[in-house]
Design a protein around this nucleic acid. Structure first.
Length: 559
RNA sequence: UGGGGUGUCGUCAAGCGGUAAGACACAGGCCUUUGGAGCCUGCAUUCGGAGGUUCGAAUCCUCCCGCCCCAGCCA
């Protein structure tokens, strides 16, 4: 777990170490991860999760999981469950500290009354349009609401009646009395409570008024004793308001907000609004579509939590806007899987090979290591027989330069087995397509050199036709064709990669794969990493998702 | 345009006045029963630009430029 020994610490940890040194908050460190349950978590959230839980673990503190559910529109229990599931899957533990902002509604309401009593908040009858108008623009100061100077008694009365449901949705709001001339627009008497009759997924119809983010978040932090409230850059403008509310209502230790740059990943999109659109408009098969940058999608694709966490640690934490190369994520996945995934053989695009000098009907069990470097992963038996399948592009009738697979005058090693030599081929008379190729093998070459002692350059994978099992393979590619689809604004849908999913069937896999468990990961040798899809696989038709391809230096060479 | 941020290799990112870490990507080479993996080598004479301070500046000062955020009763 000591992965960051050589890693320089980021600016947030610097702040925290300084706070510990000066004994701020008595040296206590308490963070929280506060998603709104109105969508699934994605890799950007993973960065925040790793940061918050990582800091808590590193400084012997705590990290809470808190549902920031103050706006009933769009929030559901399904999302809550998915969030819990995803954070857990990543391997983090909030112990008994699962909280809901909605559990604080009563206390938040009391805080609001307190603010009114201090003369720092008022009920405003302006319409949304009027409020915007009074707030003016970025360059000119705002104008005070005509309701700004209501008495405390009147405000208290009105606010209580707002709570009891006396007024229509949108007819009145509670506002903080701060400064309509502030250069920070968020400080121009921000709305603290609105009337909304939408039922809340947890509190039902009990409340008709709901606190706004700015009011609820800082106070929830304070209630939970959060010391460092870490959020993304776009909340920087909210910090003066965060501090204002906390200073008006909280005695003693106060939480501190710190902002970092959210993650952007190349060739994908990480805005909740747009991910929802992809799901709802059917561009993907759901939140857990393996092409999605969601935690659920990556899990189904076969990514490991370890790889995702390694990635999050490698990208660092800073305040600069960024667009991280998705190749880094893929490299982390490959690194992890290379070490841990057992190997198997599978032919994606089969070409029939007949070994002419191999006895008809005979089968030899060849023992293959499950991992070339790690014997503790054990061995398995793979049957060899007269008729095999090899990959279509592992044979070339007129090989290009540097081609080292099978060709009419180049012998090749069958992985873990014999060296074979081309004899002749049979083409389909009508199409001219190669139907099958005939070869001879040398029985002496299984664990030795080739026929005449010289080295064979190429090694190809294969599977015995008699024992192979047909499987469906799904090849995934990046979801978008451009590096930064978010920069295309609402046109981003025009840049969806039409080839982000390719389905291959039948592919022929070694029979051992028939016992694979849902989610099990393998390296199909020379191709990539694959995992058994837990949702769409059936006994008759197993479905394997390509997690990530192997690095392919040949395809570069071939160009 | 007011305010708040931010600019260091293709992409992230260290650097905190003493002479540009690392990772991914990329390019070569070695090795190899995965064209995989591994190993080795190369990859910012320069830090958005221009001035200035200093023996010495990516780091300090001044001015300029680019990009991001804020005018929801979203978070």
């Amino acid at each position: 777990m000591e992965t960051n020994v050589n890693q320089p610490i980021d600016f947030i940890r610097e702040i925290i170490e300084e706070d510990i040194k000066t004994n701020k908050n008595s040296g206590r460190v308490a963070t929280r991860f506060p998603p709104e349950p109105n969508g699934y978590l994605h890799i950007g959230h993973a960065k925040s999760i790793c940061l918050n839980f990582g800091i808590a673990a590193q400084y012997k503190g705590t990290c809470n999981l808190r549902m920031d559910d103050t706006d009933p529109a769009g929030e559901t229990m399904e999302y809550v469950e998915s969030i819990i599931n995803d954070v857990k899957w990543l391997g983090f533990d909030w112990e008994d500290r699962l909280f809901f902002a909605s559990d604080y509604f009563e206390r938040l309401y009391d805080f609001a009354e307190e603010l009114i009593k201090k003369g720092k908040a008022y009920v405003c009858d302006l319409s949304p349009d009027e409020i915007r108008e009074y707030r003016r623009t970025l360059t000119e100061p705002g104008k005070e609401s005509p309701y700004r100077n209501r008495t405390v008694e009147e405000n208290l009365d009105l606010f209580r009646r707002m709570k009891s449901g006396e007024f229509a949705d949108g007819s009145r709001v509670l506002r903080a009395k701060i400064d309509m001339a502030s250069s920070n627009i968020l400080m121009r008497d921000p709305v603290l409570y609105r009337i909304k009759r939408t039922p809340h997924y947890r509190t039902g119809k009990k409340w008709v008024i709901y606190p706004m983010y700015d009011f609820a978040h800082c106070l929830s932090d304070a209630i939970e004793g959060i010391t460092h409230s870490i959020c993304t850059l776009e909340f920087e403008n909210n910090r003066p308001l965060y501090d204002w509310i906390v200073n008006e209502l909280i005695e003693g230790e106060k939480p501190r907000q710190i902002e970092f740059a959210r993650l952007n990943l190349s060739y994908t999109i990480l805005s909740k609004r747009r991910l929802i659109e992809l799901v709802e408009k059917g561009y993907v098969a759901g939140w857990d579509d393996p092409r999605m940058p969601t935690i659920a999608g990556m899990r189904r694709r076969g990514y490991t939590p370890e790889a995702i966490k390694t990635f999050c640690n490698k990208i660092g934490v800073a305040k600069k806007d960024n667009l991280v190369d998705i190749a880094l994520l893929e490299a982390c996945v490959r690194d992890d899987l290379n070490e841990n995934a057992p190997r198997a053989m599978c032919v994606l695009q089969p070409l029939k090979v007949i070994i002419d000098n191999y006895p008809e009907g005979q089968t030899k069990e060849i023992e293959c290591p499950n991992h070339p470097k790690n014997p503790s992963l054990g061995k398995r038996k793979v049957p060899f027989s007269k008729v095999l399948y090899i990959e279509r592009d592992d044979f070339s009738e007129n090989p290009p330069k540097k081609y080292k697979r099978l060709s009419p005058d180049k012998e090749v090693r069958l992985r873990n087995a014999y060296v074979i030599k081309f004899s002749h081929l049979i083409k389909d008379g009508a199409t001219g397509e190669i139907k099958e190729i005939h070869c001879t093998y040398d029985p002496a070459t299984k664990d030795g050199p080739s026929l005449d002692g010289k080295k064979v350059e190429g090694v190809i994978h294969w599977v015995a036709a008699s024992h192979a099992i047909p499987i469906e393979v799904r090849l995934y590619d990046r979801l978008f064709t451009v590096e930064d689809p978010a920069s295309k604004g609402d046109d981003y849908l025009n840049y969806i990669n039409p080839d982000s999913l390719k389905i291959l069937y039948p592919c022929f896999a070694e029979h051992n794969l028939k016992d694979a468990l849902p989610g099990a990961r393998f390296q199909f040798e020379r191709i990539g990493y694959f995992s058994l899809d837990p949702k769409d696989s059936t006994k008759e038709r197993p479905v394997f998702n390509r997690i990530v391809s192997l690095k392919d230096t040949w395809s570069k060479l071939a160009k």
